[in-house]
């Protein structure tokens, strides 16, 4: 299957990555090649096969629902590109 420019623009938007219009043709071609490559899986009969979601045949362990860590406000904020009064800042989202 080949991806058109509109599809690429749509998935780039879903992935929140800005793509310039002049890149769309090239990207559409590249992504189409990849999709064509992976589509060979359609020739495999997978009727009745359970999807494999984890390699380890294990049940995820449970733990008590208690606080195990915390009180590290400064460490959490230390790498923020922009912070104010101990909060992360974002562009205005409500007019």
């Amino acid at each position: 299957m080949s991806l058109d420019k509109a599809t690429v623009r749509n998935i780039a938007n879903l992935a929140r990555i800005e793509v310039r219009d002049e890149e769309l043709d090239h990207l559409a071609g590249e992504l189409s090649n990849i999709i064509t490559f992976v589509e060979q899986l359609s020739e495999v009969n997978t009727d009745g096969v359970e999807p494999m979601t984890s390699v380890a045949a294990m049940t995820l362990p449970m733990r008590k629902d208690v606080v195990t860590d915390g009180g590290r406000h400064d460490a959490v904020m230390a790498n923020a590109p922009e912070a104010e009064d101990g909060f992360f800042t974002v562009p205005k989202v409500v007019e």
């Binding site: 998935i11 990207l27 992504l31 992976v38 899986l41 359609s42 495999v44 997978t46 999807p51 494999m52």
Partner: peptide, 24 residues
């Protein structure tokens, strides 16, 4: 972008679920 595409609505079963079955 490829990952977003194969997980997007309408394609999930055709690509991602299929791949998980072949993985098994």
């Amino acid at each position: 972008l490829i990952g977003t595409y194969v997980l997007s609505a309408g394609y999930y079963d055709a690509y991602y679920a299929k791949a998980q079955k072949v993985r098994r």
